[in-house]
Nucleic acid binder design. Sequence first.
RNA 1: GCCGAGGUAGCUUAGCUGGUCUAAAGCGCUUGACUGUGGAUCAAGAGAGCAUGGGUUCGAAUCCCCUCCUCGGUACCA
Length: 497
Amino acid sequence: MNIETGPIPRLPRGFRDIPPEDVLLRERMIASVCSVYRRYGFEPLETPHIEYLDALGKHLPDVDAPDGGVFAFRDDSAEWVALRYDLTAPLARYVAEHEKEIVFPYRRYQVGPVFRLEKPGPGRFREFYQCDFDTVGAGSPAADAEACCALADALEAAGVERGGYIVKINNRKALNGALEAAGVAPASVAESSSDNSLVVLRAIDKLERVGMDGVIRLLGEGRKDESGDFTKGAGLTNSQIDSIVRYLRASGDGRSDVCDALFEAVKDSETGREGVSELRAIHDMLSAAGFGEDRAVFDPLIVRGLAYYTGPVFEAALTFETVDERGEKKQFGSVAGGGRYDTLVERFLGRKVPATGASIGVDRLMSALKQLLPPDASAYSAPVLVTTMDPSLMPEYQKLVFEIRGAGIPAELFTGSGGFRKQLKYADRRNLPLAVICGEDELNSRTVSIKDLLLGRELSKDIKDRASWVDDRPAQVTAPRSELVATIKKMLSGSDI
RNA sequence: GCCGAGGUAGCUUAGCUGGUCUAAAGCGCUUGACUGUGGAUCAAGAGAGCAUGGGUUCGAAUCCCCUCCUCGGUACCA
């Protein structure tokens, strides 16, 4: 704290270090999810963390976007480059750049960190992982349906039980049809970002948090929350609001019935009718694949992101309840989402290229899995520590540790400084289950001693005096040197490590 | 961006109606009792000058202002 020279060690705002158990959990999770993607025929792709700023479709930080957005800087030829903020924009660039070589439909998945220069919030950081899969060059609702199936399968592979999640599907065309019917939207979905319909979509997107009453207020004059903060509304008339709410309240017994109800709400709009018929096609595909209502439903409340989706949109939510800081129960909520975006590649090629895909929020899903899966105690360090009682025997210890590693058991040689006492303490503090001990006695008798530290810790609860604690050498066995590995294996398996 | 709470040893906190605070405690850490054994116990010890800068005052961790950061909420989210 009182350092007068040198830099202060600190993490940049919005970034974090990932502890070992989380790194391993993430690796396992990503491996399971990606194996599902591969099973669906998606192939991997890696693009760099950095792209040209204009390829990402962002503006310069200071000039055009005072609130920032991306980490950008000039490279050695004074070109603006930036850290990618998602994996979709690089995909669009890749597809446009290799248009002639790619065999369409192109299906790829990609995992990696993305970066956003915005205010960190609860569970929001400036660097986080995304895990995307997309199909480019296929306009059929079959591709959308498949994305929903892959999403469901991926969640199950990651460890979420069936019933613990639900994929909710809506269609932006249908949604837009509802807005059109209410007289607040342009005829084209693609232009919906430029007017009041954005405000309406935003309002709907908040339903989960503010409730239907809140949404209705946001559609009208606006809404004031508990902290007194006022959010300006869309300023719709009551009859317009009624019309939209009719769409939002559309429900039915099963996907097919929901489609009927949605159709009723949008039947005056051509775009709307188109959207509903896409949903029906998706329903047929889901049903044929055996995906029932327990895995995928149609939900008119799903909006997703705001700008670029042009057709079906979907979101996967976890349905189990969690208890937050205050002990209040609430559903875990959304961990993945996606949809159809037929205009993204257009920026590069000047014509529409249909695309659909989804992205799993790796960090969100991870925090969910932590609550679902039993904790995997200290699986990240080597289970065996070879202690070095006599420094002159280091070569001997080296032989021991390599013998153990040779048998496929992760093992560590104590290379720090300090006496034997300190070494055992080190192993204990790190929760290592076994310590291999070899001093003069063992060397002379061609044996090794192996201490079960976890068992010993249990036994120590009944210790009354130090002499017996030391002399009895609890939870320790001495075996012939030749049986080193066999003994370790037996002890590791016998104690549920 | 806006509203609110807060920043005191590695960690968790006490102190905050200004004056033995040259800042306290628990945990953790170091060393020894215990020269080949983790726990417990006992003893000794290291470690912050109170986020930063400025102001008020005879005197500030304590009061006031700026900035930074953290944590909530809200807005935004390609």
